[in-house]
Design a protein around this nucleic acid. Structure first.
Length: 646
RNA sequence: GCCGGGGUAGCUCAGGGGUAGAGCGCUUCCUUGGUAAGGAAGAGGUCACGAGUUCAAUUCUCGUCCUCGGCUCCA
């Protein structure tokens, strides 16, 4: 007999060879019907795999990430089976579960596959799912594994098997499909009730662009039809928030093939919005002791040879600009930090001056592969909200605190409620690959961890993720529909101070090496604005939105009164416009609602007589009558609270 | 850069070897209105660009540019 320990601390005894599914049935039939997999002594297993020793057991359902993973991985097998039935002779690469579903990389040989074929595969999958095929796990020897796939002629699987240890190889068989697979899988395909194949894409075998490109098919499955429907609604919602579409609709930015791909053009409304963001951050930074600096858009190749960027990225950069007579080479600047190092170096510094904080909205240019460009989130020219802090190792902690204050303030002002932080530290097993002294690394890593703990930040520590030049802290936000976006970063740098030979005079009158901290709360203005658009779906916070209010005269008779109000509003600092078209009020309201203008001021005979206006709020409706002064005060104080500038 | 979709009016898109269509928007006129679409008329296109095939190309072929979904890459 073996003892099975359950999460509620109860212990049950079973015959050897019992399964997680047996245990579940023992608890309740209902539970058993929902069990997708099980965690046995910390390892995820098939719910149908025999347990032969005492064990801790946790049953996994659709509510557990590992349960979902088992479901999606099993779905990948189901898709492979369907594909094999429809397209005999195809070969399979890998088919894992991913964050949202699964994919399988397939070598379709001579078959041509496009999105039009997905429906057919989906249908076949549904058919096979209804057969409630079980997933059978089998240990196989390396020899047998090889001969199976040799016979099948699948060189991809053979390549994978060759890298595996004999004795650790398992096959899974479901229906007519047998795959090399570690598992775990769900008990049967019957759990897969709703199937959606989402896209087809090319993917290199093993991610290597020199190797054959396979066809990758993405899909997602659910245990209930309703959940698929909800997922599809979410996709629709994401589509509606696409910053490329909203950017066009709201006249924020555009691209021109004559200007060049990946080079955004900011339209007046977008530029105003961005300027407002920038001046806000400038004000916050000024208060936090930053000093502005400005550097040119190009720099001599020597600068980047000194910084090390030339060796690392020179070949993948835009080609250098050459002076006509001397033949000197200049690069478009890919980073602001080398310039800022030279600004620091322009005169000697005393320890009494530190920390020095140079801030610049610096536009940088990087050659990105053409296929990688995407709206404003991935471009070839962008503006970093950059700053470099030069300080002593002892000051790192305070400086991190200061930067986090700034980041939290601006994220709050923009209504990002959830911020996730990643702290990237050295690989503890490999200290050699990092530049800088061990003591300094220890000091800075300790400082970062302490800051996170003291502030109670929602942070995860990743070992081995640090850059070779220093540890870092990255900020991610969750948007209104739950998607995560990587934004700002704070990075310690021991490398550039070394390369640029930055020094300050210490109290001992000796030269010392400062530490440099790179930080960008937004990351890039382009990417940030894109994220903001998608987060708020174009309904920008009142302090940022290009048009805060629009005056809607009931008829042309009240246009004069409306214009008078407009001037008053503008004098009181409200960004307003007026709709003087000869349209009905309902129409003007509808148009203003679609344009997502926060406040609508309706003026007609009553308002003109009482010298006030009727206020309608976007998405809410009629708020009643206010005087111009009253409503301006309301709007301005709403703005002030959001900006939180003391 | 690679694989696969695309590029037709300001926007969203239909069409197809005989030089072009819808809806919305825009302009003008009628209408003068009270909280999400009043009516009519009109303007607007080198069908991305370049070459080829053809009596004839926006349509077919090739190339280039741009764009979308992925892959790869990302200081």
């Amino acid at each position: 007999m073996i003892d099975i320990h359950l999460p509620d601390n109860s212990v049950r005894s079973y015959e050897e060879g019992t399964t997680a599914l047996d245990v579940a049935r023992d608890i309740s039939e209902g539970l058993a019907r929902n069990v997708l997999a099980a965690r046995i002594n910390g390892e995820v297993w098939d719910a149908t795999r025999p347990i032969n020793t005492d064990a801790d057991l946790q049953l996994l359902t659709w509510n557990d990430d590992d349960g979902k993973a088992a479901m999606w991985h099993s779905s990948a097998h189901l898709m492979a089976e369907a594909i094999e039935k429809l397209y005999p002779g195809v070969k399979f690469g890998i088919g894992p579960d991913i964050e949202q579903g699964f994919y399988y990389d397939v070598d379709f040989m001579d078959y041509e596959i496009s999105e039009k074929d997905l429906g057919k595969i989906e249908k076949k999958m549904q058919e096979l799912a209804r057969e409630k095929q079980s997933y059978e796990r089998n240990d196989v020897s390396k020899k047998d594994a090889i001969s199976y796939f040799e016979e099948k002629g699948d060189e991809y699987k053979l390549e994978l098997i060759n890298e595996l240890e004999d004795g650790s190889i398992t096959f899974y068989k479901s229906g007519s499909f047998t795959d090399l697979c570690r598992g775990p899988h769900i008990p049967s395909t019957g759990f897969i009730k709703a199937i959606k194949l989402t896209k087809v894409a090319g993917a290199y075998w093993r991610g290597d662009e020199k190797r054959k490109q396979l066809t990758r098919i993405y899909g997602i499955t659910f245990p209930k039809k309703k959940e698929l429907d909800e997922y599809l609604v979410l996709l629709e919602e994401a589509k509606k928030r696409d910053h490329r579409i909203l950017g066009k609709e709201l006249d924020l930015f555009t691209f021109s093939h004559k200007v060049g791909q990946g080079l955004p053009l900011w339209l007046p409304k977008g530029a105003e919005l961005r300027e407002r963001l920038e001046s806000y951050l400038k004000e916050v930074q000024r208060k936090a002791g930053y000093e502005p600096v400005i550097s040119p858009h190009i720099g001599n190749v020597k600068l980047y040879k000194t910084s090390g960027h030339y060796d690392k990225y020179g070949a993948e950069s835009f080609r250098p600009i050459t002076t006509p007579v001397e033949g000197e080479e200049f690069f478009l600047k890919p980073m602001n930090c080398p310039h800022h190092c030279e600004i620091f170096n322009s005169k000697p510094h005393s320890y009494k001056e530190l920390p020095i904080r140079y801030a610049e909205f610096g536009t940088v240019y990087r050659y990105e592969q053409s296929g990688e460009l995407h709206g404003l989130t991935r471009v070839r020219g962008f503006t970093q909200d950059d700053a470099h802090i030069f300080c002593t190792p002892e000051q790192i902690k305070d400086e991190f605190n200061g930067v986090i204050d700034i980041i939290q303030q601006i994220f709050a002002a923009l209504d990002f409620k959830e911020v996730i932080i990643q702290i990237s530290l050295r690989d503890p097993d490999n200290h050699e690959k990092y530049i800088g002294s061990i003591e300094n690394w220890d000091k800075s890593e300790k400082a970062i961890i302490e800051v996170a703990e003291e502030r109670g930040l929602n942070a995860v520590i990743e070992y081995g993720e640090a850059a070779f030049y220093g540890p870092k802290m990255d900020f991610m936000v969750k948007d209104a529909i739950g998607r995560k976006w990587q934004l700002g970063t704070i990075q310690v740098d021991y490398n550039l101070p070394e390369r640029f030979d930055l020094t300050y005079n210490g109290a001992d009158n000796e030269k010392h090496r400062p530490v440099m901290i790179h930080r960008a709360p937004f990351g890039s203005m382009e990417r940030f604005v894109a994220v903001l658009i998608e987060h708020c779906g174009g309904n920008f916070p009142l302090w940022l939105i290009p048009e805060q209010a629009i005056i809607l005269p009931i008829s042309e008779k009240y246009n004069e009164y409306g214009k008078k109000i407009l001037i008053l509003l503008q004098e009181l600092g409200i960004r307003a416009a007026i709709d003087t078209r000869s349209e009905k009020t309902g129409r003007k309201i509808r148009d203003a609602e679609i344009k997502k203008i926060p406040y609508m001021f309706i003026v007609g005979e009553q308002e003109e007589n009482d010298n006030n206006l009727s206020v309608r709020k976007h998405g809410e409706g009629d708020l009643g009558k206010y005087s111009v002064e009253e409503i301006s005060k309301i709007i301005n104080s709403e703005v002030e609270v959001m900006m939180n500038l003391k």
